[in-house]
Amino acid sequence: MRVIVWLVEGTWPACVDAVRTHARDASEVTLLHVTEPGTAGLAHGAFAGLLGRAGSEPDPERRLVELGGTSAAELLDAAGARLGRPCTRLERTGRVEREVVAAAEGAGLLIVARDGDRSRLGPHSLGRAARFVVDHAPCPVLLVWPEGAPELTTMPPPPPHHR
C-alpha cells in the first residue's frame, strides 16, 4: 500500500507518528510538502509599490523563494529522520489543497492533521485546506489530532431540532 503523508509546519510530527502506528506495513511512504505560491510575489508587489524608493534595496522576492525552498527541504529531512525508514520526499508548489488531492491519486491512504481549532471536537477542527482535502481525496484518509484529541465535553451540543 502506498501512503501519502501531508506535512505542514507545526503538525507534521503527528502525521509521521501515525505512519509508524497505523501504516507500518506500507510498501511505500511519500512525505509531501506543498508551498503556496504567491507569498514571494506579495513581497515583490509591496516592494514595487514603494514608488521609486525601491531602487535602494534588493527585491525580496528571490530571497523569499530561496528561504521557502530551504524550509521545505529541512522539514522533509526532519520528517524522514523521524520516520526512520526509506521514503520518498515530494515538494510541490500550487494551491495547497488541490496539490494534496492530486498527490493522493492512486494512494492507499492519505494521512492528514487537523489544521483548525484543535481545542474542541467538531467541524471547526478542520481548516479550509484540510476540509477540502478530506472532502475530495481520491483515497481513504486518516485524520489525526496533532496533540491528542480534546475531551468529549468539548463536543458541540446537538441542534435544537434534534434534542
Rank of each mutant, 00 (worst) to 15 (best):
M1P: 09
V3E: 02
W6A: 12
W6P: 04
L7N: 01
V8A: 14
E9R: 11
G10Y: 01
W12D: 04
W12K: 03
P13W: 02
P13T: 02
C15L: 03
D17A: 13
D17S: 11
T21W: 06
A23N: 10
D25T: 08
A26S: 14
E28V: 06
E28R: 15
V29S: 14
V29K: 05
T30L: 04
L31V: 06
G38I: 11
G38R: 10
T39K: 10
T39D: 10
G41F: 03
H44C: 09
H44K: 12
G45F: 08
A46C: 10
A46F: 08
A46W: 09
F47N: 11
F47P: 11
F47E: 12
G49F: 12
G52R: 09
R53Y: 12
R53N: 12
A54N: 13
G55P: 03
G55T: 07
S56W: 01
E57W: 13
E61I: 03
R62Q: 15
R62L: 13
R63V: 08
V65G: 11
V65T: 15
E66T: 05
E66M: 03
G68T: 13
T70K: 12
T70E: 14
S71M: 09
A72N: 00
A73S: 03
D77L: 09
A78S: 08
A79T: 00
G80Y: 00
A81H: 04
R82S: 02
R89D: 03
R89L: 03
R89I: 03
R92N: 11
T93S: 15
G94M: 05
G94W: 07
R95Y: 07
V96P: 12
R98D: 15
V100L: 13
V101F: 11
A102K: 11
A102H: 07
A107R: 08
G108I: 02
L109R: 02
V112C: 06
V112P: 06
A113H: 01
D115R: 09
D115E: 06
S119D: 05
L121P: 00
L121S: 09
G122H: 06
G122A: 06
G122N: 13
P123H: 05
S125N: 02
L126F: 00
L126S: 01
G127H: 10
R128A: 13
A129R: 07
A129T: 13
A129V: 11
A130W: 00
R131I: 00
H136L: 10
A137P: 04
C139F: 04
P140T: 01
E147D: 12
G148L: 06
P150N: 00
T153D: 15
T153N: 10
M155Q: 04
P156N: 07
P156S: 06
P158V: 07
H162V: 07
R163M: 00
